[in-house]
């Protein structure tokens, strides 16, 4: 499927899943989609419906309330789907690490493929993350 993966790498449509973040990462994601960074030149496009998505941008520590919803969103997405954890929250919990209401193991809720650290990460870092994903897809 090398040929297909190359097509996929050139046309990544992202869907934004906000899983109890502090909201800063979401603002950075919106910055990523501004004309200044122009991710359309890489084929990246924000889509509004999860049925059209290729990559889920998940931000935030997943707390117990949103965990079922996040799981459902992942199941609703057409495969192949990739999950990018934006910010330190999905990978390390960041400042919410000892909270009483977060799920114990975030990878059980949604299988992350790639993490972009930073609190919040710069748009450049997210583009670098997407480039890593493209590298893997291109083989």
């Amino acid at each position: 499927m090398g040929w297909y993966n190359k097509r996929l790498a050139k046309s990544i449509w992202v869907f934004h899943v906000s899983a109890s973040p502090c909201n800063n990462c979401d603002i950075e994601i919106l910055d990523l989609l501004t004309p200044k960074y122009d991710v359309e030149r890489l084929g990246i496009k924000l889509v509004g419906s999860v049925r059209h998505a290729d990559v889920l941008l998940v931000s935030g520590v997943i707390n117990q309330k949103v965990a079922p919803m996040v799981k459902k969103i992942y199941e609703q997405a057409p495969k192949p789907i990739f999950v990018m954890g934006v910010g330190t929250c999905p990978s390390g919990g960041c400042c919410f690490n000892d909270s009483y209401n977060i799920v114990e193991n975030r990878e059980d809720v949604i299988p992350f493929d790639i993490y972009v650290p930073g609190c919040p990460p710069k748009p450049e870092a997210m583009i670098a993350g997407a480039a890593k994903l493209m590298e893997v897809l291109n083989g």
């Binding site: 097509r7 050139k10 046309s11 004309p35 122009d38 030149r41 290729d54 495969k79």
Partner: peptide, 28 residues
């Protein structure tokens, strides 16, 4: 549209890539 918004815009074969990518995805 991209040039009107002072952007670079997508490469020439972008729509073909989009089309073939969608052809290989799951239908729900």
């Amino acid at each position: 549209s991209a040039r009107v918004q002072f952007r670079v815009g997508p490469p020439l074969l972008q729509n073909f890539n989009d089309f073939f990518k969608l052809m290989g995805k799951e239908t729900i």
